[in-house]
Write a protein that binds this DNA or RNA. Structure first.
Length: 474
RNA sequence: GGUGUCGUAGCCAAGUGGUAAGGCAGGGCUCUGCAAAAGCCCCAUACGCCGGUUCAAAUCCGGCCGACACCUCCA
């Protein structure tokens, strides 16, 4: 069994093979740390997470980098706003704040740590080297100290985004006369800054700072020393960002750069792209504050196929929570099941397990993978019903190992505790429950129901089972 | 204007030539003093509209309608 991925460059689902057998090198475009990331951004990181987890589930070794853009117009602007005389140290402080917020968010969403987190500001030299290489090859020209890439000299420019350059609009959306570039579609490699501007570096290229696109090309080179297998990002990066990366990397090294380009579709709000500039975004913090659970958010973001636009609504988040609850409820129930001394086994989950992986291998078809999970849940619950929560060791093992297996990709079990409501009950409520139990024994149902209402008014519900009564926080 | 994507049940969402996965909601049942919770079962003759190809189409082709995205910083 092998993976198939939809490659943006060929617009086809292709059989995946890595450069080095058994190993996969991935680079995912990460955040610019000028503000809190919104959950649309996180869709793309969850996608990267699911990708790496799926590859690992299939026993491949993954080397995965996520870059942190910590210098650009926005980070500089933010720093200067706080302190007009800001230095690079201030820039670092400013971006460190949002970096930390970003790490927190990744952890909250249970996104596995990546292997490399290259920061742009820590790779200035590498970028300078790359730009110099481009200069040597005649793939950079200077205007007023800044360096630009002449796309006319890279004949394959446009092959990723399938943009026909002759069709690109000119004159209407650009005011051509404002540009000093030879061709308005050329992009900047190095931006020269005035001597007294302190948020810049002194390099052999002069005093200035790198253009945005160069960082990915340079850092990929530094980390992987050559071509990579998979490059991911949101669809909005296809053009021009990734197109420019290709021009830079292949232009400089004359070798293929990326084997498979995978792009994740946008998260929408009311049918429109969630974005900072539109102002229609939610951060993870916003949603947590509204009381939504990280597990519901993680599930919501990964349950739809990554190449499908996904419309965000709070109602959809509620639906996701119910789905997660169902998964975790069954997990907890299985975990709590008693065992009996028999060695027969009345269920086999291997079909679901194999189906789960098979669907993921088909271009990460998570909706189908999840369908297998829910079908398995039905089997498991039916067995637990039939055997009144007493399983054989073999059965319990089969079930728990199934959960462990799917969770290597789903990453939901860490939240199970939060869905196990029967804990941390205030003592006074336990007393009321006790009184109710006594009332029921005496068949004083009027009093019992009164006590139940009292408890529920406190935000807890009474759950009667064969083993006795419990309280759950609603 | 160029390049693409999408339109499937009340909602979310797979399927892309062989007769509609899954989730949420809803209904029924089991359990219960009654409830609740939980579980099980049921729930689209139908895939935006109109034509065409085919033994067979949600799936391929053509047209139309609607929505969105990229072409500008953006995951």
């Amino acid at each position: 069994m092998s993976f198939y991925f939809y490659n943006t460059e060929t617009r086809k689902k292709e059989l995946f093979s890595s450069l080095k057998e058994g190993e996969v090198r991935i680079y995912s475009c990460g955040p610019t740390v000028y503000d809190y990331a919104h959950i649309g951004n996180f869709r793309s990181y969850i996608f990267a997470d699911v990708l790496r987890r799926a590859l690992k589930l299939a026993s491949l070794r993954v080397f995965h980098a996520l870059n942190i853009t910590d210098v650009d117009d926005k980070t500089i602007q933010g720093t200067l706003q706080k302190k007009p005389e800001a230095t690079l140290e201030d820039l670092r402080e400013h971006t460190a704040f949002y970096s930390r917020a970003f790490w927190d968010d990744l952890r909250i969403l249970n996104i596995e740590p990546f292997d490399f987190y290259p920061h742009a500001t820590e790779n200035i030299e590498v970028m300078v080297d790359l730009i110099q290489k481009l200069k040597e090859k005649g793939l950079a020209y200077e205007v007023d100290g800044s360096l630009y890439y002449p796309i006319a000299k890279f004949p394959e420019y446009g092959r990723l985004s399938h943009i026909d350059l002759s069709q690109v609009k000119t004159g209407t959306r650009y005011r051509t006369d404002e540009y000093t570039k030879d061709d308005i579609r050329d992009f900047v490699l190095w931006k020269a800054e005035p001597r007294d501007f302190r948020l810049a570096w002194d390099t052999p290229l002069g005093h200035g700072r790198p253009g945005w696109h160069i960082e990915c090309s340079a850092m990929i080179r530094r980390i992987f020393q050559g071509p990579i297998d998979i490059h991911t990002g949101g669809v909005d990066l296809i053009f021009p960002h990734h197109e420019n990366e290709i021009a830079q990397s292949e232009g400089a090294y004359g070798k293929p750069f990326v084997r498979y380009w995978l792009h994740c579709e946008h998260l929408l709000v009311n049918g429109r792209k969630m974005s900072k500039s539109e102002g229609n975004f939610y951060t993870l913090r916003d949603l947590l504050q509204k009381g939504y659970h990280p597990a519901a958010i993680r599930y919501f973001l990964m349950a739809t196929h990554y190449r499908q636009k996904l419309n965000f609504t709070l109602a959809a988040l509620d639906q996701s929570k119910e789905a997660v609850r169902r998964i975790l409820q069954t997990y907890l129930r299985s975990q709590k099941a008693k065992t009996e001394e028999k060695d027969d086994k009345k269920l086999a989950l291997s079909n679901y397990r194999e189906g789960f992986l098979r669907e993921l291998q088909d271009d990460l078809n998570m909706p189908r993978a999840l369908a297998h999970v829910f079908e398995a849940l039905r089997q498991i619950n039916a067995l637990l019903d039939e055997k009144e929560d007493v399983l054989t060791h073999a059965e319990k093992q089969e079930i728990l190992s199934f959960f462990q297996y799917i969770d290597r990709v789903l990453g939901l079990l860490v939240y199970a505790h939060d869905f196990d409501y029967r804990q941390d009950i205030p003592p006074e409520l336990m007393e009321l429950l006790q009184k109710r139990t006594e009332a029921r024994k005496k068949k004083d149902f009027v009093l019992a129901d009164l006590l139940r209402e009292k408890i529920s008014s406190q935000g807890y519900r009474v759950v009667d089972t064969k083993e006795g009564s419990f309280l759950e926080k609603v």
